[in-house]
Design a protein around this nucleic acid. Structure first.
Lengths: 154, 154
DNA sequence: GGTGTATTGTTGCACTTGCAACGAATACCC
DNA sequence: GGGTATTCGTTGCAAGTGCAACAATACACC
């Protein structure tokens, strides 16, 4: 997570917002996006849960079945070596397991263990609440608008 | 920066977008925001420039005059220790200097050097272009909308 | 088939980050 | 004033990250 919110203090200072629309949008993306993410991650962490990426991996596997690292990287927009090490850690904790990939000797299928499925469910309780709180200032309509605008940028 | 775009490959896979407006907005913020940031940072990096934070520090000082680390942290929504080490690095490269703070013995005023001002200007050439390209899919009106929505979440 | 190229996942290294603790200085409060 | 709490900036340590290189496998093409 590109960290951006101060974990130590909540300084809350006023910002000089640029007048130019593009710049103003950029500043908002650069500042408030990451700050928002961090707010949610902090909730997870203080609840004793691992980072969001762990959730993302487990959820992707739960939705689509065992996946290759390549596909996980694709889903999460993360570099391959990041996934490799993330899986290392998750495997060490017993949440996923690597098994060989039948149709490609290089690859491997990442499976979720029972503990993994359980972890994802438990995380969702905290995660969904934190997410909703973070987006509470927006109406449903605004949330959709925001999503649409960001999707346009992908 | 919470990295999220794959520096090695541009996989470009389709995503399953949630139907729930809040969740959809959240996914967009979590995925596309960081990906956008990374796109711009990559442009800076390949042009041989340091990361965006350096720009932010220099620009804040240029706008408001010498600042304390506390205030820089406030502006950038970053932890104090991050600023401390960031200033370490920037000082080592000769872009800023620490001077004592007259009215608070704990603090220090961070000044930009001539090289620092020059660096910021040079970075802006690349930065502004990259920013505009990244936000090109949006009209001015949409950019303003996006900014307003994100500001609501701060 | 055989040869050259591309992809997949891993790893050594240097660097950055978060956390917790710290010393120094200030602010508060009676 | 004097004592306590708070703030500011720093730092040791463990953990995470990007980069570049790697071995192994797959693919393309003749």
């Amino acid at each position: 997570m590109r960290q951006v919110q101060a974990p130590q203090d909540p300084p809350a200072k006023a910002f000089a917002l640029p007048k130019d629309p593009t710049q103003r949008a950029w500043v908002a993306i650069q500042r408030f996006g990451p700050a928002l993410l961090e707010r949610v991650e902090t909730r997870l962490k203080t609840a004793g849960f691992p980072a969001l990426e762990w959730y993302d991996v487990l959820w992707a596997i739960e939705r689509e079945g065992p996946l290759r690292q390549r596909d996980l990287a694709g889903h999460m927009l993360v570099a391959r070596y990041s996934i490799s090490r993330l899986i290392d850690r998750m495997e060490a904790e017993g949440y996923v397991s690597r098994r060989e990939c039948p149709e490609d000797g290089r690859g491997q299928m990442i499976h979720a263990t029972t503990a993994g499925l359980k972890l994802r469910k438990a995380m969702w309780v905290v995660y969904s609440k934190a997410m909703r709180d973070a987006l509470a200032p927006l109406t449903e309509k605004e949330a959709l608008q925001l999503a649409a605008l960001l999707e346009k940028l992908a």
